[in-house]
Amino acid sequence: MKTTTTGLAAGVLAGLLGLTTACVAPATGTAAGSPAAGTSATAGGHKRIAFFGFARANAFASATWAGIEEYAKAHDAEAEFFDPNFDAQTQVQQIQDAVTSKRFDVFVVQANDGAAVVPAVKQAVAAGITVVAEFTPVGTRYDTAESQVPGVITLIDVPTDNGRVLGELGVAACRSRKLDPCEVAYLEGFKSLPLDNARTEAAVKALTAEPGVKLAARVEGGYTKESGRKAMQDVLQSQPGVDVVIGSSQAVAGAESVLKGKDVLLVGNGGSRQAVRAVQEGRWFATYCLPERTAGAKAAELGLAKARGQNVSETNSETSLAPGGGKGTKDALAGVQGEYDE
């Protein structure tokens, strides 16, 4: 995902981060899949973690940081947030400077630009620092959770898996009404972003592989309520009989305002409190959600364990931490709430 220093690029990435917000079951007060306190990661001496997040002001990165910081404090470690404010080159420089400082044992990297950080990440690995790639891939492939840099641990949301699940949820929505044909509108993010294109193609493939499901519209819906509202208005002009709408949680919220009184099933891409509540109340059919605060804690757990000489899995997917594997249907989200607001 290419991110530049322009305000537009920063805004685009900030919107993308609203996609996959966190889900947590309140009954236990612990995020789904979060590491248990007192694990063997406490062995091996005091460690320091550097977190290279998207931006300190971003709620998504703040949720990741909260998980990292909480886990570090409970396991004889301390953590520091390096804030590039969505600037890819600033983030690269921060990683390089942290390597030179020799102050840290573990890096957790939320890459603003997965390709741009590769040289700096390789430098960190060569210096003996444990590196965990969190949420976004470090590299140029969007179809795998496997590490694209030797020695790097991954804990990511694979974009093509995200798209496939969205498509499958759209198919499930069609089946729930026994619609044949079932007309689906897909409100993709931004056609200019490779990550978004990979997600979209995977969603379209899952939808069109199902007999009786017709992709009636594929338009850019973006990551705001306003862009979703406008996209839905455009869709209805050409496809007034659409049955299912899929898009970012923000875009779907905007589309919902246009669809008042219409019997249309909605599938969002994001697990904020607002999106989860919409599914639980029956206003949306489903939403894709992952526990991001939990993911932050898990990234810290993996990094500290490896830094302390333990064997850890190099390849990890965030969907393993989520209720329903990210498929946030009403049943899967029973008793669940988002970890933070959009």
Score class of each variant (00 low, 15 high):
Thr4Ser: 15
Thr6Phe: 08
Leu8Thr: 14
Ala9Ser: 15
Gly11Phe: 01
Leu16Phe: 12
Leu16Met: 09
Leu17Glu: 13
Leu19Arg: 07
Ala22Leu: 08
Gly29Asp: 13
Ala31Asn: 06
Ala31Thr: 13
Gly33Gln: 02
Ser34Pro: 00
Pro35Leu: 12
Pro35Trp: 09
Pro35Gln: 14
Ala37Leu: 13
Thr39Met: 02
Ala43Glu: 14
Ala43His: 06
Ala43Gln: 13
Gly44Cys: 07
Phe51Gln: 11
Arg56Thr: 14
Thr64Tyr: 14
Ala66Cys: 03
Glu69Asn: 14
Glu70Val: 02
Glu70Gly: 13
Tyr71Gln: 14
Ala72Val: 12
Lys73Thr: 14
Asp76Cys: 07
Ala77Phe: 10
Ala79Arg: 07
Ala79Glu: 11
Phe81Glu: 06
Asp83Leu: 08
Asp83Asn: 15
Asn85Arg: 05
Asp113Arg: 05
Gly114Glu: 11
Ala115Leu: 11
Val118Cys: 04
Pro119Glu: 12
Gly128Asn: 09
Thr130Gln: 14
Thr130Cys: 09
Thr130His: 03
Val132Trp: 02
Glu134Asp: 11
Phe135Asn: 13
Thr140Pro: 00
Thr140Leu: 04
Tyr142Val: 07
Gly151Pro: 01
Ile153Ala: 08
Thr154Gln: 10
Ile156Leu: 11
Ile156Val: 15
Arg164Cys: 03
Leu166Thr: 03
Leu169Cys: 02
Ala172Ile: 02
Arg175Asn: 15
Asp180Cys: 03
Cys182Leu: 11
Cys182Tyr: 04
Tyr186Gln: 00
Glu188Ser: 04
Gly189Gln: 15
Gly189Lys: 07
Phe190Arg: 06
Lys191Gln: 13
Leu195Asp: 04
Leu195Phe: 07
Asn197Arg: 12
Ala198Met: 11
Thr200Cys: 07
Ala203Gln: 13
Ala203Asp: 11
Thr208Asp: 12
Ala209Ser: 15
Ala209Leu: 08
Gly212Tyr: 01
Val213Asn: 01
Lys214Leu: 06
Leu215Tyr: 10
Leu215Ile: 03
Leu215His: 06
Glu226Leu: 08
Asp234Pro: 06
Val235Thr: 06
Leu236Gln: 05
Gln237Pro: 05
Pro240Phe: 12
Gly241Phe: 02
Gly241Thr: 13
Gly241Tyr: 02
Val244Leu: 04
Val245Ser: 06
Gln250Lys: 12
Ala251Asp: 13
Gly254His: 00
Ser257Gln: 11
Leu266Pro: 06
Val276Asn: 05
Gln280Ile: 00
Trp284Ile: 03
Phe285Lys: 00
Ala286Glu: 01
Tyr288Ala: 01
Leu290Cys: 07
Leu290Ala: 15
Glu301Cys: 02
Leu304Cys: 12
Ala305Tyr: 00
Gly309His: 05
Asn311Trp: 00
Val312Asn: 02
Ser313Val: 00
Ser313Ala: 15
Glu314Met: 15
Glu314Lys: 05
Thr319Gly: 01
Ser320Gln: 09
Pro323Cys: 10
Gly324His: 06
Gly326Glu: 09
Ala332Tyr: 01
Glu339Lys: 01
